[in-house]
Computed example of a mutant assay.
Amino acid sequence: MRQELMSLPKGLADDVARNLVMVAQLIDEEPEKAYEYSRIALRLASRVAAVREAAGFAAYATQKYSEALAEFRAARRMTGTVELWPVMADCERGLGRPERALAMAGEPEVQKLDKAGQVEMRLVAAGARRDMGQLDAAIVTLQSPELASNANHPWTARLRYAYADALLAAGREGEAREWFAKALEADKDGSTDASDRLAELDGVEFVDAFDDSDADSDDDTDVADEAAGSQEPAGADGETDGEGEQRSEPRDGDES
């Protein structure tokens, strides 16, 4: 990316670089802000492929799929690479065109992808099958040597998770639980919510002992009890009694 920016005057390159850094820092937690920075970079250097790609990912993160697809296509024309093929196909899904995504999964470009890209394309194709109501086909699409491998790669957890989720949707709960467990085993950086899905299947409920809404409700109850107590007949010692009780409510545990 730095090499691409060297084609710009230094002052302009620095401005563009600062905006791209902000895109990278914000895209996961604050995608709307990342998108705003990407638009600034795009206005400054629309002829730089890295800028078009960054703008595409920022638009994708904010579900602006038509805009994202246009930026990815522009970046691909500039570079001639196929790295963006899977995310371009996923944009077609986002636009409600799963059949186009599925067609892209069968194009020659897929064979030019590295292993990570091919796995990503498989995930997109399976998602397209599910979009079209072809659940069994989605399960078969995910069955691959990469899924069966015991090796742990950056994409392993996501692949196992997608397979588990498809199995669960098909009503194969026992198998789904097994694969959610395998996904969790491979998920070293918490990229999935496999642990929550496992707990849900096991019937585990989580309780939040610090629910603010409950505290407010309890305060109101205490005030009401005090008011009621002041109107109760006094005891032999001239004092009244009142009790307050605190409770916590269950909270459910999730792309996610």
Results as ranks from 00 to 15, higher is better:
Asn19Ser: 10
Arg158Ala: 06
Gly242Lys: 08
Glu239Lys: 15
Trp155Phe: 11
Met6Asp: 12
Arg197His: 09
Arg158Tyr: 00
Ala151Arg: 09
Glu92Asp: 10
Val204Tyr: 04
Ala164Tyr: 04
Ala34Pro: 09
Tyr161Asn: 10
Val223Gly: 02
Arg129Val: 06
Ala34Trp: 10
Ile27Asp: 00
Met78Leu: 10
Thr240Trp: 00
Glu245Gln: 10
Glu249Ala: 15
Asp202Thr: 12
Asp15Asn: 09
Ala228Phe: 02
Leu95Tyr: 03
Ala183Thr: 00
Asp189Ala: 14
Gln231Cys: 08
Leu168Ile: 10
Ala148His: 10
Ala186Asn: 06
Gln3Cys: 04
Val16Ile: 07
Asp165Trp: 01
Arg129Trp: 14
Ser144Gln: 04
Lys115Asn: 11
Glu226Ile: 15
Ser217Asp: 08
Ser46Thr: 04
Leu42Trp: 00
Val140Cys: 01
Asp254Gln: 06
Met6His: 07
Ala101Ser: 14
Gly11Tyr: 01
Glu175Pro: 15
Met132Leu: 15
Leu95Trp: 01
Ala157Trp: 00
Ala224Cys: 00
Gln231Met: 08
Arg93Ala: 03
Gln25Glu: 10
Leu113His: 04
Leu12Trp: 00
Asp202Phe: 03
Ala176Phe: 02
Ser230Lys: 12
Met22Ile: 06
Glu32Ser: 14
Asp218Arg: 08
Leu20His: 05
Asp189Thr: 13
Arg251Phe: 05
Ala128Arg: 01
Asp196Cys: 12
Glu255Asn: 07
Ala101Cys: 02
